[in-house]
Design a protein around this nucleic acid. Structure first.
Lengths: 121, 121
DNA sequence: CTAGAACCTGACGCTGACGTCAGATGCAAG
DNA sequence: CTTGCATCTGACGTCAGCGTCAGGTTCTAG
């Protein structure tokens, strides 16, 4: 599978895939002419990378964790990183939940008929 | 209240407060010498800005919404923005939840005793 | 064999929310 | 009056995850 096909299958850009390789997140074998060829499993790998990015992990952190995912074995350090990121995500969810509640409050407050000027709405 | 005091009270930097003014998110009256002076309500205002930032809103969006918060009145446009941001936050929470589950899976998989090498753990 | 689509390697550009530094001024205490 | 901390205005620096462009090469269909 070449890079264009992987890009369309995963929905990420060709540039991004090359960036992942540069960051050592995604390996590829090279053809004689130097073109990248990917295994089928690369699709899941890219999706995992995207998921972790969306969760706020840096490429550095992802790079450190991927070997651990592949091997199924974690070191005390990687366990600490994993737990730390999980807690950070928990806090972020809590913050987002608060923000959503705040937005709901604003929506309710501004959508309600204005008592001082009832015909505005 | 001068800028340094507001900074310590809210936990954000002096630079950030000046940036908020530049983005028209936070007003201040000036003393004769040009120094900024803030009302007590500025503390809540800054906390609101931080909350919205943390939720992924841009300063542009926050600027558009603040008048609506202050006046208690929303326009159809601002209602659309509010609803859109709320939905985006919902999707983001869902994504984070998925990521957390994935991390939990990884933690469980790598922390479990390795069947091929049981004494590693 | 050849056209042209897909791919390659640099390398610079972009964005947002500030950090940071320089040099000048304001303000309260002694 | 002076010391010295707080504040001021500009303006450049940062960082990550790519976008984009230039100029050259590889692969595949006909």
């Amino acid at each position: 599978m070449r890079i264009g096909e992987l890009a369309t299958k995963t929905g990420v850009s060709v540039r991004a895939l090359r960036y992942y390789e540069e960051q050592e997140l995604l390996g590829a074998v090279r053809s004689g002419g130097g073109q990248r060829h990917y295994a089928d499993t690369a699709v899941e790998r890219v999706e995992l990378i995207q998921l972790l990015y969306a969760a706020g992990l840096s490429s550095r952190t992802v790079r450190d964790l991927l070997p651990c995912v592949d091997s199924g074995v974690s070191t005390p350090q990687s366990r600490a990183v994993l737990a730390g990121e999980r807690d950070r995500i928990d806090r972020q969810i809590a913050e987002l939940t608060r923000a959503r509640e705040k937005l709901d409050t604003i929506i309710a407050a501004t959508s309600a008929p204005n008592p001082a000027c009832p015909y505005v709405n």
